[in-house]
Amino acid sequence: MKYIGSIFFIALLIGYFFVSCDKIEEPFLRNNIPDTGDTGTATVKRKILIEDYTGHKCPNCPFAAEVAKTIHEEHPDQVVVMAVHAGSFATPDASGNFTYDFRTPEGNQLNGDFGLGAAYPIGLISRITSAPGRWDVQYTKWAETVDTLLNDVATVKLTLTNNYVEANRTSNVTVKTDFLTDIEQNCFLCVYLTEDSIIKPQKKQNLTILDYIHMHVLRKSFNGTYGTQLNSAAGAAGATFTNSFSMNLSTDWVDKNCNIVVYVFREDTKEILQVETVKVK
């Protein structure tokens, strides 16, 4: 019995050196968050982009669209949705209900680059990694994944100015990008156009809904799939970039239903740091 005490003592000692822990005292908020200054960061929240990869012939995709809608309704100021029609479920048929082609070269490229071909619906949540080397998130996990980002502090601020010339259906958008923290990686700015309320058929399980309302449909990019490079090496805190883009709207699109979606992503991790949206008209 005599050496039990000493062994306990040794174990505790080893435990003390071995195990470390950081007890955090209140307040739990960081006090070094930049919350004043020219950029007005106090009001900047990180916004989250849900990319819903979908297709009009995909039987389960309407469920994913409903999940995206619910998340958007819960966090209207912090969540932006973009529906990317790509893959075999989006391939139009020669005849029948599904002859319309929702696909875009940008969407096809993203679908391939992120390896999303296998099973739809699937999504990207601000392109954060869901597993090493993977970005895809099942729609049943979108809400949980968005929740993990809602409390993040914005690292980039985007300010959009849109000037729509109705006469020639031209959208002119100017984007001001402010880096709020140092980001030691190349960053790119992407400007996309989406359209709401497109009424076209959609499969839902074994039914075909002829008057389905397609929301947030990716139509075209203003500056290519991967956009415009903002910084050659590092986006230091305080760096600001201003870029302008314009696009003629196709006659097939309803201008008052169109939105401009702008985001900045890191080249190394592909993560979307910030996203903003504004209506075209």
């Binding site: 195990v19 470390s20 908020l29 993040d152």
Partner: peptide, 15 residues
Amino acid sequence: KPTSKYKLPVNVAAF
């Protein structure tokens, strides 16, 4: 995680 607005414990212990 520098983007978190909370002071996060980097070492968390359990006993």
